[in-house]
Amino acid sequence: MMPTLNNKDRIVVDKISVNFAEPKRGDVVIIKYPADTRVKYVKRIAAIAGDRVKIEDNKFYLNGRSQEETYIKDKYIKGYLSEVVVPDNTIFVLGDNRNESIDSRFNDVGFVNKKLIVGKAILKIYPLDKFERIR
């Protein structure tokens, strides 16, 4: 999730509201890895059910529009994803470090069932000089 989060960062996770509120595009969430639910990943929700997504010409497209993503590490996005529609009760997640991220572009993650969302990352609390709200 670099540059948003680094390996030794400590975060506060809201595990309650995810049970009552629908996930939103742009939220940074902790999910259970679908291929092994004992493992957890931190990812950004790029799309929600019903959205159309594709990756082409180094850009992420949401519902036919290229997205300006100021939080990603590299402007170049490896790979290609033909347009797909996010199924009901799922989300499409991407890491901010797109070229090193295992996320919804890969079959072992794919569309993530909303039931696999553990919580929403809300604050970075350590290191102390990096204390901030996660966006």
Results as ranks from 00 to 15, higher is better:
1 M>S: 15
129 D>S: 12
49 A>K: 08
126 Y>A: 12
133 R>N: 09
16 I>R: 10
70 T>P: 03
56 E>L: 11
16 I>F: 13
12 V>N: 03
73 K>V: 08
93 V>E: 01
113 N>A: 13
13 V>A: 10
82 S>F: 13
76 Y>L: 13
64 G>T: 01
105 R>F: 04
27 D>E: 15
58 N>G: 01
106 F>S: 10
34 P>A: 02
119 G>T: 08
103 D>L: 05
103 D>W: 06
132 E>M: 09
31 I>L: 10
119 G>L: 09
49 A>V: 03
58 N>S: 14
90 T>Y: 05
81 L>C: 07
32 K>Y: 08
14 D>Y: 02
70 T>W: 11
7 N>Q: 12
96 D>Q: 08
15 K>A: 07
65 R>K: 15
91 I>M: 03
23 P>C: 05
126 Y>F: 15
52 R>I: 11
5 L>V: 00
78 K>A: 14
49 A>Q: 10
32 K>N: 12
11 I>S: 06
122 I>G: 05
10 R>N: 09
86 V>F: 03
14 D>W: 01
77 I>C: 01
113 N>I: 05
54 K>C: 12
4 T>E: 06
100 E>K: 11
128 L>K: 11
75 K>P: 02
14 D>E: 05
1 M>Q: 13
3 P>R: 07
41 Y>T: 01
23 P>I: 03
41 Y>F: 15
122 I>H: 02
35 A>P: 02
94 L>I: 10
51 D>V: 03
122 I>D: 04
130 K>D: 09
1 M>F: 14
117 I>G: 09
121 A>N: 01
43 K>Y: 10
125 I>H: 04
39 V>Y: 13
99 N>P: 04
3 P>Q: 09
12 V>Q: 06
84 V>Q: 15
76 Y>S: 15
33 Y>S: 06
60 F>A: 07
30 I>A: 05
26 G>T: 09
134 I>D: 06
29 V>T: 00
48 I>V: 15
120 K>P: 08
38 R>E: 14
92 F>N: 04
44 R>M: 04
40 K>A: 11
14 D>C: 06
48 I>S: 05
120 K>Q: 11
111 F>L: 03
6 N>R: 14
